[in-house]
Amino acid sequence: MLNSKLLHKKLFLDSGLKTQVKEVNTSNLEWTKNFGDIAPFMQLDLRLIWRNKRTKSSVWMLALGLLYGLFFYPNPTYNNMPFFFIFIGIFSTGIFLINFGQFVPAWDSGYYKLLMSQNIKYEQYLKSKFTLMALSVVILFVLGIPYVYFGWKILLAHFAAAIYNIGINTHVILWGGSFNRKKIDLSQKAAFNYQGTGAVQWLIGIPLLVLPMIIFALFNWLLSFEIACLVLTVMGVVGIVFHQKLMRFITGKYLESKYKMIDAFNQDN
């Protein structure tokens, strides 16, 4: 009788339902089906990111990227350094792009051989990576709109940087991935872990960060801040317009390196 009374007190239908709802919400990736045939690859990437120690760092780095401007914008010293706005804009809106994209396809190195044996469409595989990176840029830009508090020029620079990231840097970093030959152990912690890091990861920073700063600084010096932002924006738009052609070119590079990558990922490095 005592056990029966305790059960009646503790047993509520709502508590059981709450547990079930929580489980569904945390694992439901149905929204990815809106992206068509790349949805399975997006789901694979999202699960990989959330379930492994190394890839989770890409998520936590979002906060660092979003708040990065607060280390500089409140300081009046940087008010007269507009080229620095672009650097922060590229970094702030592109932190996930840089942190996640630089290790494509090494994130999948543990099962890359199996993945390639499935006769998948490589372009879809890469487009899923592109889509995740592009979405992250849009989200981070929107979340960073409050930076307008420090001046409209900062918001304009961040907008130009975001378009540049989507149109240029996403393609650049995917192209760079075709040269990746370093395996990554996803179970390892991210802190002070340089596994998977090679010459590609160091060199890719030049076109990702240095090049847009040089272009911006040049046009800002020759013409004006607004024109410099416009140039980067136009470059990004051109990259978006030619996205399909660029992806076909990048896919070709991956297909050329397919067996080299399979062999490299089978090695212990």
Score class of each variant (00 low, 15 high):
1 M>D: 09
1 M>I: 08
3 N>K: 11
13 L>G: 01
14 D>E: 14
17 L>P: 04
21 V>F: 01
22 K>M: 12
23 E>M: 08
26 T>K: 14
27 S>V: 08
27 S>Y: 11
31 W>V: 14
32 T>K: 04
33 K>F: 02
33 K>I: 07
36 G>A: 07
39 A>H: 04
40 P>D: 13
43 Q>P: 05
47 R>V: 15
52 N>S: 14
52 N>E: 11
53 K>Q: 14
54 R>M: 06
55 T>H: 11
55 T>W: 00
58 S>E: 13
60 W>Y: 15
67 L>G: 00
69 G>P: 08
75 N>V: 09
75 N>Y: 11
76 P>Y: 00
77 T>Q: 11
78 Y>V: 10
84 F>C: 09
84 F>V: 11
85 F>P: 13
93 T>V: 08
94 G>R: 00
96 F>S: 10
97 L>E: 03
97 L>G: 05
103 F>N: 02
104 V>K: 13
104 V>P: 10
107 W>H: 13
108 D>Q: 09
109 S>T: 08
110 G>Q: 05
111 Y>N: 10
130 F>R: 12
131 T>S: 12
137 V>W: 03
139 I>P: 01
140 L>K: 07
142 V>Q: 02
143 L>Y: 02
145 I>S: 09
147 Y>H: 05
147 Y>S: 08
148 V>W: 04
150 F>N: 07
151 G>C: 04
156 L>Y: 10
157 A>H: 03
160 A>Y: 02
162 A>I: 01
162 A>L: 03
162 A>S: 13
163 I>L: 13
163 I>V: 15
164 Y>F: 14
169 N>W: 02
170 T>N: 04
171 H>V: 11
172 V>Y: 01
173 I>N: 00
175 W>I: 08
176 G>D: 03
177 G>Q: 04
181 R>V: 07
181 R>E: 15
191 A>I: 14
196 G>V: 01
200 V>Y: 08
203 L>Y: 12
204 I>L: 10
206 I>H: 02
207 P>C: 15
208 L>E: 13
211 L>Q: 14
211 L>R: 14
213 M>N: 00
215 I>Y: 00
217 A>L: 06
217 A>D: 15
218 L>W: 03
223 L>C: 07
224 S>Q: 11
228 A>P: 05
229 C>V: 10
232 L>A: 13
237 V>C: 08
237 V>N: 12
240 I>H: 06
240 I>V: 13
244 Q>N: 07
244 Q>E: 12
244 Q>F: 04
247 M>W: 05
250 I>E: 03
250 I>Q: 07
254 Y>E: 11
256 E>K: 15
256 E>Y: 04
258 K>Q: 08
259 Y>A: 12
264 A>T: 10
268 D>C: 12
269 N>W: 07
